[in-house]
Simulated assay, not measured.
Amino acid sequence: MDEVEKFISRLNGMDPTRPYFDPLAVEEALRRHARLIAFRDVAFSWAMGPLEAKRALGGVDFEDSEMRRWYLTMQALDDQATIDLKRDDAVWRTYRKAQSEAETRLAETLDLDLFDLSVMEIVGGDAGYSVHPMVHLVTAALRDLIASSAVDNERLLDLNEAYLPFVDAMLAGLGTFWTAGETFVCLPLPRLTLRDGKPVADGSPAAVWPNGEAYAYVDDVLGAALQSVEG
Results as ranks from 00 to 15, higher is better:
residue 169 A to W: 01
residue 9 S to W: 10
residue 143 R to I: 10
residue 8 I to V: 12
residue 209 W to R: 04
residue 173 G to R: 01
residue 23 P to K: 03
residue 157 L to G: 12
residue 103 E to H: 15
residue 120 M to F: 08
residue 7 F to E: 09
residue 26 V to K: 08
residue 183 T to M: 00
residue 185 V to I: 11
residue 35 R to V: 14
residue 68 R to V: 05
residue 88 D to S: 10
residue 50 P to K: 06
residue 71 Y to P: 00
residue 201 A to E: 12
residue 210 P to C: 03
residue 65 S to N: 07
residue 184 F to Q: 00
residue 109 T to E: 15
residue 75 Q to I: 13
residue 119 V to C: 05
residue 176 T to L: 01
residue 28 E to T: 03
residue 54 K to P: 01
residue 196 D to S: 14
residue 149 S to T: 13
residue 99 Q to L: 11
residue 142 L to D: 05
residue 71 Y to W: 13
residue 178 W to T: 05
residue 132 H to V: 06
residue 200 V to I: 11
residue 197 G to F: 13
residue 197 G to W: 12
residue 155 R to N: 11
residue 63 E to M: 07
residue 102 A to M: 11
residue 123 V to E: 04
residue 206 A to W: 06
residue 70 W to K: 02
residue 136 H to Y: 14
residue 102 A to V: 10
residue 6 K to A: 09
residue 85 L to I: 14
residue 17 T to W: 11
residue 66 E to N: 14
residue 120 M to Y: 07
residue 207 A to I: 01
residue 36 L to V: 04
residue 67 M to F: 10
residue 50 P to E: 07
residue 166 F to P: 00
residue 155 R to M: 13
residue 146 I to W: 04
residue 67 M to T: 13
residue 104 T to V: 12
residue 81 A to K: 04
residue 57 L to M: 10
residue 88 D to Y: 11
residue 26 V to S: 12
residue 121 E to M: 09
